[in-house]
Nucleic acid binder design. Sequence first.
DNA 1: AAGTTCCCCAACCGCATGAGG
DNA 2: TCCTCATGCGGTTGGGGAACT
Length: 264
Amino acid sequence: MGRQPCCEKVGLKRGPWTIEEDHKLINFILNNGIQCWRMVPKLAGLLRCGKSCRLRWINYLRPDLKRGAFSEMEENQIIELHARLGNRWSKIAAHFPGRTDNEIKNHWNTRIKKRLKVLGLDPLNHKPAEQEENLEENSETNKGSTSPKQQEETKTSDITHASSVGNENGEENFKQQDGEADVTTSIETTNNDSNNQEMLFNGISHGPPFSVDDSVLLQPLVDGESSSTQLDDSLQKWIESLDSMFSWDSIEQFQECFFLLENS
DNA sequence: AAGTTCCCCAACCGCATGAGG
DNA sequence: TCCTCATGCGGTTGGGGAACT
C-alpha cells in the first residue's frame, strides 16, 4: 500500500512553464498569498500540481530572487559552507539571500566541482584527491559493518575535520547546531543589510526572468543576455517599472506592473 | 552548413520531515 | 502512538543552446 501521490497527475501539464502560466501563478499569489500549495493550481486556474507551482515560484518567480552569475566571493563562501554542511543545499542557500538551493546546487555540480578538481581537491570531502583514495581503501574494509546513518555521520565528521577553514570543535558544533553557528558568524559579516539591499536591487534590475523571442515558451536567460530589441512593449514596460522601483517591499507596485503588463 | 558532443539549468521524482487529527 | 497529508529537500534527468569537428 503505497502513499498516494501528492496530486492527481492525470491531465496535468508538465515541462517548461509558459508566460501565461507564470502570470496566473504570480497574480494569484500576489492577490491571495500562499495558504496551501495544493490548492494554488486549482484556484489559480493552472493545470499543474501544487508541487510544481511551489517549485516554480521559489526557484524562478519570487520577486526577491537574485539572478545572474555567482561572484568569486560567493563561490568561495559556497565552498566553505559545503565543507561544513555537506550537500545540504537549503542550509547553504540560507546564507545567500536571493539565491535558491536549486541554483546553488546546479552551480556546485557544474562549476565548483570542476574548480575543486582542477585544484586537486575532492569535491565530496574537500581533501586532496590522493588522500581521498586512501580513505576509500580504508572504507572498503569497513563496508557492511556500518549502517547508512553511521556512514553518513562518519562522512560528516570527515568533512568537518578536513575543512580547509577548519574548526577545532567542528564535529561538536555540527551535532549541536547543525554546523551552522560558526559559519553564520563568518558569513553574516559579509551579508550585512546594505549588502542584501544591493543584491536585491541588482537582482531586480536584471529585468524579467524570461525572454520573449518565443512568445509561448518561457526560456531562462543567461545573465546579461537580454536584448531590448527582442522585447515586446509590455515586457519593456515591465523592465522599466522594475528598474524604477526601489525595492520589492511594496506589493502594490508589483501588482501595478502586472496590471500594466496585462492591459498593454 | 551540418552533425556531434558538451554543458547548463529548469523541472521532476521520490523520500524525509513535521504538523495535526 | 499511529496515521495521513502537505511541504521541504536533495538527487537526477532531459531539453536546448553553445562549442567543436
